[in-house]
Amino acid sequence: MRITSIETIRVAEFANLVWVRLTTDEGLTGIGETYFGPDATEAHIHGVVAPYLLGKDPRDINTHTDYMLGYLGRTGSSAEQRGRSATDIALWDLLGKSLGVPLYQLFGGKVRDRLPIYNTCANMNYNTKPAASHSTFDYGTGQGPARFDDTDAFLKRPVELAGSLLDMGITGMKIWPFDFLGSDVVDGNISTAGLRKGVAAFREIRKAYGDKIDLMCEMHAFWNLPSARRIIEALAEFEPSWVEDPVPLDQMSSLAALQASTPVLIGTGETLGGIGAYKSLIDAKGCGLVIYDVSWSGGIGNARKVAAMAEAAHLPVALHDCTGPVVLAASTHLALATRNCFTQEIARAYYFTWYRDLVTDLPPVENGTITVSGKPGLGLELSPDLFKREDVKVKCSILE
């Protein structure tokens, strides 16, 4: 079996997404996906990955993984890492299809049949447009169907939002009210008034529902160390399951100092890339929950290594969603086969709207849990209708 073509597929409506489709001389295809910086990622796939991978046997994944990175971009979620990650996912999809088995069986099988989900309270337009930097302007608040404008809801109607999630059987929710109180301030400080305003949603939800719903606070690494500590101390009385990305991930010592100062779990790691960065995070004791994104960290092979390192350190892991439907499928396969993974992130505003338009199948969600279908590989394909869209763009490298 040999790879004969490598395609990248993009649509203007969801401009941050890039899909990779590999085709073999036996007619099998594998799909992958990554997110953010699509121009640079696409350039790496066609400029570095394709010249190496075309003509190769797609089943030799361990041989290919380092060659797909290139010379630069080994650390961080670089364009090189994102391009490698998307292609790696497609290779694993191909491997599963060639053997006629779902992805999780390639990992040694599932350790559970279903996994609880938590909802990242985004809306359907959250982060779908290119942005020079991550800020509140790209959150899409007040756009799209009111039923799934969960960002607007946690800012204005947090108790109502929590109730609607519980009605769906979802018992975990992640919100980020502090973003709107400091994300456009370059010094990363939080005022006393902002602190009180930010915790209000957590107080209201706890008062209404007690411990019926788990709460997480996303902090998007907007804060300096003293402000992050103040926010976490203020949240402690509401017993969040974790606080996420309180400070930038460029100084493991800051994360270590922060985690050592509080019993509240810090969850972080999704924007790291390469196994070395995760080893540094774990060795520094910089968090109580290791979070990673399979489409940024180096792909499925790296994700499995990160989970193993965390397990050896007696740490739980969680996989990032809020990207695209292919990543959700890959993450769910990994999560179901990972002993130290206890939950899977979804954004219901994505899952129940545009995710369904882009692929043929999704991992089934029912009563607040998620699983996979059992179909070979990832268990889904890009929708044929995707290629009929006026805003679709396909670029192809072909074996000559």
Rank of each mutant, 00 (worst) to 15 (best):
S241Y: 12
N62Q: 14
T268D: 00
G32W: 02
R84L: 15
K129I: 12
D385R: 13
R157P: 13
K285L: 10
E160S: 14
A313F: 01
L69T: 11
Y71K: 09
F137L: 07
V290E: 07
S397L: 13
S261L: 09
V159D: 11
S77V: 03
A312P: 01
M216R: 08
L181F: 15
A200H: 13
I232A: 09
L22K: 01
L166W: 05
G182Q: 06
T141C: 09
S191Q: 09
S280F: 04
G70M: 09
D211G: 10
T171K: 09
G169A: 03
P384G: 08
E270G: 11
N127H: 13
D93K: 03
I232Q: 04
G210N: 12
R10P: 02
Y35Q: 12
N367L: 04
I61R: 09
N16K: 12
V48C: 12
N189M: 11
G140I: 02
M252P: 00
Q344M: 12
L336V: 11
Y118R: 04
A308R: 05
G301C: 02
V294Y: 06
R112E: 06
L215M: 15
D245I: 01
Q251A: 07
H44S: 14
S261D: 14
S397H: 09
T268V: 08
Q143C: 14
T192L: 12
A349W: 00
T343R: 06
K156A: 15
P325L: 10
G379R: 02
P130Y: 09
G30W: 00
N189R: 08
T338L: 03
A40F: 07
C396H: 12
I117E: 03
P145R: 11
F342S: 10
L91H: 05
V159N: 07
L362Y: 04
A335L: 12
Y67V: 07
D245Y: 02
H46D: 08
P384A: 14
P51K: 15
Y209E: 08
L72R: 09
Y351K: 03
G70F: 05
E33K: 07
V247C: 08
T29V: 06
V185S: 05
R82E: 06
P316F: 01
A335P: 05
F178C: 11
I213F: 13
V243C: 14
G169M: 06
N119K: 06
A200C: 08
Y292W: 12
L319A: 07
P38E: 11
P263G: 13
L289C: 09
L115N: 00
V394E: 10
K174P: 03
T75H: 13
I231D: 06
G140M: 01
A12P: 01
F148W: 07
T353H: 07
F238I: 11
V48M: 01
N189I: 12
T8F: 10
T87P: 06
R196G: 15
L358E: 14
E270I: 04
W176C: 05
R203Q: 15
K56V: 10
W296M: 11
